[in-house]
C-alpha cells in the first residue's frame, strides 16, 4: 500500500517544530508501524534528509520506549497495544497518517518524535520501591500472599512506563502511572512499612514535575497498552487520603 505521512519534525528542545509531509510506497500489511518508519528513514537518508528520530528498543511491546501519537491516539488505533506492535494491517492504501510526539510539558521533545520521560524515573525515586538491601530478605515463602492480592498487584505492576496515559489525558496527568506503582506495592504486605510515605512523596514529585491533576475521564485506561485499570487511581486516592488523615506530625 502507499501512504501519506504527516510527521512532527523538531530539531531539538529549544527550536520550534512543525509538520512535514512524506510519502511511502509499497508498504506491506505485515510490517509493523516502526518498520514502515524504517523504510521511510532509509528513503530520507538516500535523499539526503535527516531521518526521523523516535524512541524504540525491544519492538515487542514490553520495554515501553516507543511513543508515537498516531492519528489522535497514543500508540495508534489498536487498543491494548504499543506503537511497535501496531501493524500496517490497521491502515489502508492511500491513508494519510498524522504522527505527533507525546504532548505534555513534563515530557519535553528531545528531537522529532522523541520525548524526555525522565520525570517518571524521578517519581519512582521519590518512593516507588521497597527499602530492602540486598541480603536482607527472608525466605520467599515465609510470607504467604493471597493469590488475588498477588494477581492484582501484578496487574498494576505490568505498567511499562511508556507515558501513553499522560499523552491521552486532557490534563496531562500521570495519575495512572503513579497509581499503578502505588497499587503494585500497596497490595503486597512487603510494601506496608513505607505505604504512607510512599504515596505522599510520589504524589508530591508528580506535582512538582508538572503533570496535571486527574479528573477521572478514563481516557488513560482505554489507551494503556497494558490495560492498567482506572480502579488503581481510586486506590491511590484512598491511600493518599488515609496517609494524610492519619499523619501524626
Amino acid at each position: 500500500m502507499n501512504l501519506n505521512l504527516k510527521v512532527w519534525r523538531q530539531k531539538n528542545t529549544a527550536t520550534k517544530g512543525g509538520f512535514k509531509l512524506y510519502r511511502v510506497e509499497n508498504i506491506s500489511s505485515e510490517m509493523s508501524f516502526l518498520e514502515m518508519f524504517d523504510v521511510l528513514n532509509e528513503q530520507l537518508i538516500h535523499e539526503g534528509e535527516d531521518p526521523i528520530t523516535f524512541d524504540h528498543d525491544c519492538r515487542e511491546g514490553i520495554c515501553g520506549a516507543c511513543s508515537m501519537y498516531i492519528d489522535g491516539k497514543p500508540h495508534g488505533p489498536w487498543q491494548a497495544n504499543t506503537t511497535c506492535q501496531l501493524h500496517m494491517r490497521a491502515f489502508k492504501d492511500g491513508d494519510t497518517i498524522v504522527v505527533e510526539p507525546w504532548r505534555a510539558n513534563a515530557f519535553p521533545v528531545i528531537k522529532d518524535l522523541m520525548v524526555d520521560r525522565t520525570a517518571f524515573d524521578r517519581i519512582i525515586q521519590a518512593g516507588g520501591y521497597i527499602s530492602v538491601n540486598t541480603g536482607n530478605a527472608v525466605d520467599g515463602n515465609a510470607l504467604p500472599i493471597p493469590k488475588d492480592d498477588a494477581d492484582a498487584s501484578f496487574a498494576a505492576a505490568m505498567c511499562i512506563g511508556c507515558g501513553a496515559c499522560v499523552a491521552a489525558c486532557k490534563n496531562s496527568s500521570a495519575m495512572l502511572f503513579l497509581s499503578a506503582k502505588v497499587s503494585h506495592l500497596a497490595l503486597l504486605p512487603q510494601g506496608n512499612p513505607e505505604r504512607k510515605s510512599r504515596v505522599v512523596n510520589m504524589l508530591a514529585q508528580m506535582d512538582k514535575e508538572g503533570f496535571g491533576a486527574c479528573t477521572n475521564t478514563g481516557a488513560c485506561e482505554a489507551t494503556c497498552p497494558k490495560e492498567i485499570s482506572l480502579t488503581n487511581i481510586a486506590r491511590l486516592n484512598q491511600e493518599y487520603l488515609v496517609a494524610s488523615l492519619t499523619d501524626n506530625k
Binding site: 504527516k6 501519537y69 489522535g72 491516539k73 491521552a168 486532557k170 475521564t217 481516557a219 485506561e221 482505554a222
Partner: peptide, 12 residues
Amino acid sequence: GYAVDYGNRGSK
C-alpha cells in the same frame, strides 16, 4: 496541543 484530537476513546 495535538493536531488531531484524542476523541472519545475511553472517556465521555
